[in-house]
């Protein structure tokens, strides 16, 4: 059986990839895609925990996570469409009005 650590490191790697995307990309859509990658890292981690502790709770958490990811994508993308229609901009530097 594969050691549990492998799943933890895979999840960590995916989370870091998503974090780099969120922190460094300009495009708002790719930012939301990177958020989805971070959610996927959590899904891998929770299902591995559930498998290795012989408990179904992690699978239920994954179920909730998938539903929440769908909700987040809906709200985020509708905000992106609103922003694009009203300002014609979807790059983060162009809409950064409140730079401190």
């Amino acid at each position: 059986m594969i050691p549990f650590e492998y799943y933890v490191y895979l999840s960590l790697l995916l989370f870091c990839i998503g974090l780099v995307g969120v922190m460094l990309r300009r495009n708002l859509i790719i930012l939301l895609v990177s958020l989805e990658i971070m959610m996927n890292a959590l899904i891998v981690l929770f299902s591995a925990i559930s498998r290795y502790s012989n408990d179904t709770t992690g699978y239920v958490v994954v179920f909730f996570l998938i539903a929440l990811a769908a909700a987040e994508a809906g709200v985020g993308l509708s905000l992106v469409v609103l922003l694009y229609r009203s300002l014609k901009k979807i790059y983060t530097e162009d809409i950064n009005y409140y730079r401190g």
Binding site: L13, L14, R25, N27, V33, I37, N40
Partner: peptide, 14 residues
């Protein structure tokens, strides 16, 4: 999973 993730983050075309 990791290689498409990296390619998704660094690709120019959405």
């Amino acid at each position: 999973m990791t290689i498409p993730g990296i390619l998704a983050v660094i690709s120019r075309n959405p």
